[in-house]
Design a protein around this nucleic acid. Structure first.
Length: 301
DNA sequence: CTAGGGGTAAAT
DNA sequence: ATTTACCCCTAG
C-alpha cells in the first residue's frame, strides 16, 4: 500500500473513528481534547485528524471529498472472467438493530500498542466447522448452518445477513460448493481471481474434512455465550459510568466496522482491516479507562 | 477553528 | 506511479 512516514497506528485510527462516532466528523478539536482519545492522539494535531479522516474516507468510501479526479480519471480496469453476481446492496436501510450490547473480543497475549494483532473471529472458520460437524450428506443449507453457529456460539443480531453474505462470498470464491441450496466444502482448489492468499483456516492442521469430528474447539477463539456474560459482569463491576462509556464506544466501533464490512463485502481484506481497527480500539479504550488496570476482556484461558 | 484546495516527500 | 502522512493557504 501506501507509504508511511510516521504511519498511523491502528490505535490512532481506531481512536479517530471512535472520536468521530462520538463527537461527529469535524469536531477535531473536541475529539482531541477528549481525554478518552487524547492519550492516543496526543501526537496529532487537529489538522492531522482532519487530513487523516480525509485519507481514510478516500479508502473506505469511494468518493470522500478529495478524490474527485483521482478515481474519476482512473479507468476501471477490471477483468471479470466470471460474472459473479456479487452486487452489493448498499442503499439498503432496511435492517436496523436495536440497542444490544456486543462486546468485542480481544486477543490475549500481547496487548500493547502497535503490536496487537490477529485472532479475530473468522466466520469462515465457523462455517467450515459447522458444515464439518453437521456432516450432512450433500451439504447443509443456510438455515442449518446458521442455527448451528448460533447455538454453539454467540451470534450478533445481524448475524443472518453476515452469514448470507459470507456464504455467497465463499461460494463465489470456490471455497464452498452450492448445490440445491446446500453448501458443502469444496474439495481442494480454491482461488479464482487475482492474488489470493490462502486463508488460514487450518488451525487444526490434520483433519479438515476428514471424519473425526469431535467438537474440538481447542484453538478457536470464539467466545461462548457464557463467556460473554462473564465479561459483561466484569464491566458492570467497574465504575458504571466508565463501563458504560467503554461499552458504548466498543459497540459503536464494532457496529461501524461491521457496517463497513458489509459495504465492502467483496474485499474481505479491507473488512478485516477494519475489524482489526475496531478490536484495537476496544483494547485501547479499556486501557485508557483504567490507566493501570490491565483489564482485559479477553477470553481464552 | 474548520473545510477544502493545493502541494511535497517518501515508501511501495 | 500510487498512496499517504504532513504541510500550507484561504475562505468562511
Amino acid at each position: 500500500m501506501g507509504a508511511p512516514k510516521q504511519k498511523w497506528t491502528s490505535e490512532e485510527e481506531a481512536a479517530l473513528k471512535a472520536g468521530v462516532l462520538k463527537h461527529g466528523a469535524g469536531k477535531w478539536r473536541t475529539i482531541l481534547k477528549d481525554p478518552e482519545f487524547s492519550s492516543v492522539l496526543y501526537l496529532r494535531s487537529n489538522v492531522d485528524l482532519k487530513d487523516k479522516w480525509r485519507n481514510m474516507s478516500v479508502m473506505a468510501n469511494g468518493w470522500g471529498s478529495r478524490e474527485k479526479a483521482r478515481l474519476a480519471l482512473k479507468r476501471v480496469q477490471h477483468v471479470p472472467k466470471d460474472d459473479n453476481p456479487l452486487a452489493v446492496a448498499i442503499a439498503d436501510p432496511s435492517d436496523e438493530d436495536s440497542g444490544d450490547v456486543r462486546p468485542i473480543q480481544s486477543s490475549s497475549g500481547s496487548p500493547q500498542v502497535g503490536g496487537s494483532k490477529r485472532s479475530m473471529i473468522r466466520l469462515d472458520n465457523l462455517i467450515m466447522e459447522a458444515i464439518n460437524n453437521l456432516k450432512e450428506h450433500g451439504g447443509s443449507n443456510k438455515t442449518t448452518i446458521g442455527t448451528y453457529i448460533e447455538e454453539q456460539y454467540w451470534a450478533p443480531p445481524n448475524f443472518k445477513r453476515l452469514l448470507s453474505m459470507k456464504l455467497k462470498f465463499l461460494t463465489a470464491n470456490g471455497k464452498l460448493v452450492k448445490t440445491k441450496r446446500k453448501y458443502r466444502i469444496a474439495s481442494a482448489n480454491a482461488s479464482s481471481s487475482d492474488k489470493k492468499r490462502v486463508p488460514s483456516m487450518l488451525r487444526l492442521e490434520g483433519r479438515q474434512k476428514v471424519s473425526s469430528p469431535k467438537v474440538d474447539k481447542d484453538e478457536i477463539i470464539v467466545p461462548t455465550k457464557a463467556q460473554i456474560d462473564l465479561e459483561l459482569q466484569k464491566m458492570r463491576s467497574m465504575t458504571p459510568q466508565e463501563a458504560a462509556a467503554a461499552a458504548a464506544q466498543a459497540v459503536a466501533e464494532a457496529e461501524a466496522a461491521i457496517a463497513e464490512a458489509e459495504e465492502a463485502a467483496r474485499e474481505a481484506e479491507a473488512a478485516e482491516a477494519d475489524a482489526e481497527a475496531a478490536q484495537a480500539f476496544a483494547e485501547a479504550a479499556m486501557k485508557t479507562l483504567k490507566g493501570r488496570n490491565t483489564q482485559r476482556l479477553m477470553i481464552r484461558a
